[in-house]
Structure formats: structure tokens, C-alpha cells
Design a protein around this nucleic acid. Structure first.
Length: 602
RNA sequence: GCACCCGUAGCUCAGCUGGAUAGAGCAUCCGCCUUCUAAGCGGAUGGUCCCGCGUUCGAAUCGCGGCGGGUGCACCA
């Protein structure tokens, strides 16, 4: 909050000191250590190099033009040319007082700079159970959406379901020949999964159970579906309906919703046109009965072609660079997900004209997105001039053996079962701690704590790193976990509630007095909320926000231990009460942006 | 073989786009409830930031070369 003001004034001072300098902005960041003050600027040192001047000399000139006496103590020039800013407690108090009046929550909304985003995340497959892998895309995507919206951007969410493609040939065949109606009634997705596995074992020529007749039969069902066969369409719609029930249940528990659920099938009518157009423009050509995009079709003139190392359509095999084409039409005439993804970009650009499309998808698909984005850029340069395409990748969830997480029987854990277990384990804990509460109350606390812990564990590691799933660590009540942060929230909220009782007289919160070390530390952290949100959005990394709420919770806990609130004398009491209120507000807001609920008692 | 991701304390991980003495949690050890919820707080121990070279005022961070782990390399998404 204040650092934005400092940046603005610093920028002005810089231009005053060096009128010719071509500098768009100057970054002011929270200082790494309190002994260097509250904020620091190190940009002048790199700038000095560009301007070919002595950094300390430049710093001296800039500081001479800088007027921040209302906000800080005299600015200190340190080391090779750092600027250290030490906030005045009165300036800090004024920002808190404004926040207490509801004028802001320590961040500046994008306003005129608001952008339009399409965020593509979660994307489960129809007729398959959502599994542990979906938690990452869903959690990271949902959190990024919430952060972007909080910052004032326009966000359109789209759940790009896997509801079309070769698997439906097998599913249709299974449905017609070996469906167990009772099992379907009891557990629809489980039965569909069984059908798929059984038929797939017969259709996969790599498996010992392979039966060519079955493969042909499955393909025939698929062709009929794609040709609009009424019976197959009906079955397909029923599978969709059953799947949507599952999705609704899981998303409901997770508190996730989408503006649009346009699955792959939605784009079916345009796929042939996409291929024809790419061929007509010479960007794709036939090869081995299929149609594909090659390095030499996409960049016909060699001069414009990227170096082999940076070319997503080349791969080195046995010391030679060979084609790594992107298939847009299979030899059997079917289309695949590259074609669908191209049609999807076309639709999104046409429909929403976004500034950016963000794909929250497993890192293993990075090569696909490199190809996709390259084709889009050559196909319609006007689209990519307006719309930035971003793949936000993420790593795997591992078991204790550092291999992808499996259940005891070797299967991929189902998401619904994971949510159940999180709530059950949390209930055991709540019952230990708060046996006196009613069962309904304990269950509600367990729901909030269990799901919060699960989501938080998933968002805390940087998204690109693989992480080890650990129930005990996740639900630990100490350390950097959701329950810890949620608990600090309940304490802050409780004090704020109790302190605002009617018998306490008028509140003197127009002036905030900050004296104690823990009060100052807490107040300064509150001010960094906006900076954290910006970083989170810029890097598509919710872990920044996790670490922030943890730090804030931790600072609150130290404050709580050292600074009595309700028993303090005025005006200290009111000032501390404001700190409690604002901490509770920011913790609730921050956790909310992570998709994590809070609760009034734990 | 090639590309991408990763390598930081015994363990699990951060590290704000190149900043000042590399941080946190867990684990281990020692303290603190007559006091707004101890699901808490304080302290101690713990490092060749995988290795080497380079770029510069300054490198865990950037470049190059190794070593080690993971992932991906036409008709599945």
C-alpha cells in the first residue's frame, strides 16, 4: 500500500534528478530484514549501470529530490546504493485507520488497468472418477481466478471437460454389451470406469487380452456417435449427466464454480474447418494418412524458423533433428486434442476477446502447449497480438516413496475419497480437542479444517515442484498449515467481536497508536497484503499467498501473546482492537482467495 | 539421444525476478498456562545452497559445462 506511494514519488524524484532517464517505474519492496528499515529500493544500482554513473552518487541526487517526510524517517542510503525507508508510526496508523473505515484492504484494485482473463482449469474426463491429480489444477486454478478477481480483473472460467474422443467408442461398446444396471445405480462412475477398463483391455494391442474384433467394434460405435446416431448420442448424454452429478458434488464440496463448462464435444462442429483452413494456408499437410503441422509448413521460409533447439516441432533422435509434428487429424479421420484446442482458442478469442488465456494443466503437457501456442500465433497473428497464451504448469503429488501417489492397492486415489478422509481425520482431532461441542458443531469444524488443510497443503509448495503428500503434516496444528492460520483467525475474530460489545463506549479509532514491537510488526505485515496479491497474480503462484497468510497469522500470535487487547487502557485498547479486526479481515480474505473457509471457533 | 522441470539444514519445503549475515516448519533439547482458546509463545542445536568455470560492485538466483533425480518425445488427453 504505502510502497506504491513510495514508488510513485521515487519515480518522480528520479525523473527530476535525471530528466532524460527512460524509466517506466521503480520497484520498492519490503525490506529483507527489519534492520534495513521497512522498505528498500535497489533499482538505482542497476539503473546507475545503465546510466554509467556511480550508484551512490545517483542515489544522493534522487534522494535530494525526494519528498517523503510525511511517510518516513529521512531516507538512508546504504551499502553500494540501497535506499532504506523507515515508516513513521503515524503514517502506518493512518493507513490502518483508513482500512478500519473500510476505505481499502491494503491493495489497489486494477481499475483502468483491469484485464480480461479466460482461465481454463480442472478439466476432468466424463465417465471417469475425479482423482487426486485433479486437485492441483482445480485448486491452483480456482485460487488464481479468485486472486485476479480480487484485484479487479474480469475473469471468465471455463471447465474444458474431456467429453469427446476415442474413449467413448469403448464406453459405448461396454454399455451395450456388459453394463450392470444395479452397479450403475449404486455407483455410476465406478461402473463406467469398470466398463472402460474392461473394454480397453480388449482393444489395446499392447495388452495380452487384445481382441481385434473388439477394437473394430469400439471404433464402429465411435463412428456412429460422431455421425449422430440417436441411440449412441442418448447413451453418451446419459454418461455426461451421470458425470456431471459427480462433478457437481465434488465442486460443491470444494466451493468451486465455473462460468462455462464447454467440453471438447462443444467444438466438434468446427474441427473439420480448422483442419481445412490450416491445410489451405499451407500451415499443415498430409503425412502417413494423417494431417499434421510441421516445422517446415508452419515456417515455410527457413529464415523465420526458430533454431532446432527452440523449435517445438523438432526433436533430436540418434543425433539428428527429426520432425515432431503436431497431429490435427488422425489417419482414421478422427480429430484429436490439438484440433480441439485450436478451435477452443478461436471460440474464446471471438467470444470474449481476452487479454490472456491461462491454462492450468499438468507440466507434462508443456510440449503440447508450446506447439499449440506456436500454431495459434502463425495461424492468426492478430489473435496472439491481442491475447497472451499462458500455460501454468504444475508438478506431481507423490507418496512417501517419491513416486506418484497411489492407494494401498496400487490405484490412483479418488478425489471424493480424499475429501472424505480429510474430513474424517479432522473430526478425530476436533473431538480430541473439543469433546464438549455438539457432534454437528464438531463435524462442521472438521469439514472446514479438513478441506482447508488439504487445499493448503496442495497450494503451499511452489506449483512447479513435485510434493510429498502427508496426512500428518497436513493436519498438524503447528507449523505452516491451514489449521494454524485458521486458528489464528478465530482468535483475532473472537477478540474483535468481544471488544466491540456495546458496553465498551465509543471507539477512538481515528488515530491508531503503535508502540510495541509486535504491534508494529503486525501492522507492517498487513500493509504487504497488496504486494503479495500482485506477486501471486504475476507469477500464477498461490504459494506466495500461503506464505503470506502464515506470516501474518504468526505475527498475530506473537502480538496476541504479548499485547493484551481487551484489558488494555484507552487509547491502546482501541488501536489493538483495530489490529485484531484488520488481521481477521485480511486472514479471512487471504484464505478465501486460496479457496479456504474460516470458522469462528475451533 | 534431445527437450523441459528439479537439486537449499537429518526430513518436508520457502527464498519477492541479481541484493545486505541463506529462512520457516517438522524432528531433537530447554523453558512458559491463576492472565482475551496452550490447536499457542520464547530459546538452543542444525548449511560445501549438487560440482566447476564465467558474467559484475554483488550469484542459491543469470550463462556455459558436468553430475544426480523426475517427466515428455505423431494418430490418448
Amino acid at each position: 500500500m504505502l510502497h506504491l506511494e513510495l514508488e510513485k514519488r521515487l519515480h518522480a524524484a528520479l525523473l527530476a534528478a535525471r530528466p532524460g532517464a527512460n524509466v517506466a517505474a521503480v520497484r520498492v519492496l519490503p525490506a529483507p530484514d527489519a534492520k534495513f528499515g521497512d522498505y528498500q529500493c535497489n533499482a538505482l544500482m542497476t539503473l546507475a549501470r545503465e546510466l554509467k554513473t556511480n550508484p551512490r552518487q545517483l542515489a544522493t541526487e534522487v534522494v535530494a529530490q525526494l519528498n517523503v517526510a510525511d511517510l518516513c524517517e529521512p531516507v538512508e542510503i546504504a551499502g553500494p546504493g540501497f535506499l532504506n525507508f523507515r515508516l513513521k508510526p503515524t503514517a502506518l496508523g493512518a493507513v490502518l485507520a483508513a482500512a478500519a473505515r473500510g476505505e481499502h484492504l491494503f491493495f489497489a484494485p486494477a481499475g483502468a488497468a483491469a484485464r480480461t482473463y479466460v482461465v481454463d482449469f480442472s478439466s476432468p474426463n466424463v465417465a471417469k472418477p475425479m482423482h487426486v491429480g485433479h486437485i492441483r489444477s482445480t485448486g491452483i486454478g480456482d485460487s488464481l481466478v479468485k486472486v485476479l478477481r480480487r484485484l479487479g480483473h474480469r475473469v471468465i472460467t471455463d471447465n474444458h471437460l474431456g467429453d469427446w474422443g476415442t474413449q467413448f467408442g469403448m464406453l459405448l461398446l461396454g454399455w451395450k454389451t456388459r453394463l450392470d444396471r444395479a452397479a450403475l445405480e449404486a455407483d455410476p462412475i465406478g461402473e463406467l470406469e469398470r466398463l472402460y477398463k474392461e473394454v480397453n483391455a480388449l482393444c489395446d494391442d499392447a495388452k495380452p487380452t487384445f481382441d481385434p474384433a473388439m477394437r473394430d467394434a469400439a471404433k464402429n460405435e465411435l463412428v456412429k456417435l460422431q455421425a449422430g446416431d440417436a441411440e449412441n448420442l442418448g447413451i453418451w448424454r446419459e454418461m455426461q449427466r451421470l458425470s456431471q452429478l459427480q462433478f457437481d458434488s465434488v465442486y460443491g464440496r470444494l466451493g468451486v464454480s465455473f462460468d462455462h463448462t464447454l467440453g471438447e464435444s462443444f467444438y466438434n462442429p468446427w474441427l473439420a474447418g480448422v483442419v481445412d483452413d490450416l491445410v489451405a494456408r499451407g500451415l499443415a499437410r498430409s503425412s502417413k494418412d494423417a494431417v499434421a503441422v510441421f516445422a517446415d509448413t508452419l515456417w515455410a521460409d527457413e529464415a523465420s524458423r526458430p533454431a532446432p533447439k527452440d523449435n517445438p516441432f523438432l526433436v533430436q533422435k540418434d543425433g539428428e533433428w527429426v520432425d515432431q509434428p503436431a497431429l490435427i487429424k488422425k489417419s482414421d479421420g478422427g480429430f484429436n486434442y490439438m484440433t480441439t484446442d485450436l478451435a477452443t482458442i478461436a471460440h474464446r478469442v471471438r467470444e470474449w476477446a481476452p487479454d490472456e488465456i491461462v491454462y492450468v494443466v499438468d507440466d507434462r503437457q508443456a510440449p503440447h502447449f508450446r506447439q499449440l501456442f506456436a500454431i495459434a500465433a502463425r495461424w492468426h497473428p492478430d489473435w496472439t497480438a491481442k491475447t497472451k497464451l499462458t500455460h501454468v504448469g504444475f508438478g506431481k503429488i507423490c507418496g512417501a516413496d517419491k513416486k506418484p501417489l497411489k492407494t494401498r492397492d496400487g490405484n490412483t486415489p479418488k478425489l471424493a475419497a480424499l475429501l472424505d478422509e480429510a474430513e474424517e481425520r479432522a473430526l478425530t482431532l476436533v473431538t480430541e480437542k473439543r469433546a464438549e461441542l455438539s457432534e454437528a458443531r464438531r463435524k462442521e469444524i472438521a469439514r472446514v479444517v479438513g478441506l482447508g488443510a488439504l487445499k493448503y497443503q496442495d497450494l503451499l509448495p511452489h506449483r512447479t515442484s513435485d510434493y510429498v503428500f502427508n496426512w500428518d503434516k497436513m493436519l498438524a496444528l503447528t507449523g505452516n498449515t491451514a489449521p494454524y492460520v485458521q486458528y489464528q483467525f478465530t482468535r483475532a475474530a473472537k477478540v474483535a467481536r468481544d471488544g466491540n460489545g456495546s458496553d465498551q463506549g465509543p471507539r477512538a479509532n481515528d488515530q491508531i497508536f503503535l508502540v510495541e514491537e509486535q504491534e508494529l510488526a503486525l501492522a507492517k505485515l498487513l500493509l504487504n497484503y497488496g504486494h503479495t496479491l500482485t506477486r501471486t497474480a504475476e507469477d500464477y503462484s498461490p504459494n506466495f499467498l500461503c506464505n503470506y497468510v502464515y506470516e501474518l497469522a504468526s505475527a498475530y500470535s506473537r502480538f496476541y501473546d504479548n499485547c493484551p487487547v481487551l484489558k488494555a487502557e484507552e487509547p491502546t485498547r482501541s488501536s489493538r482492537l483495530v489490529l485484531c479486526e484488520l488481521t481477521a479481515k485480511v486472514l479471512k480474505d487471504g484464505l478465501g482467495l486460496l479457496g479456504i473457509e474460516t470458522i469462528d471457533e475451533m
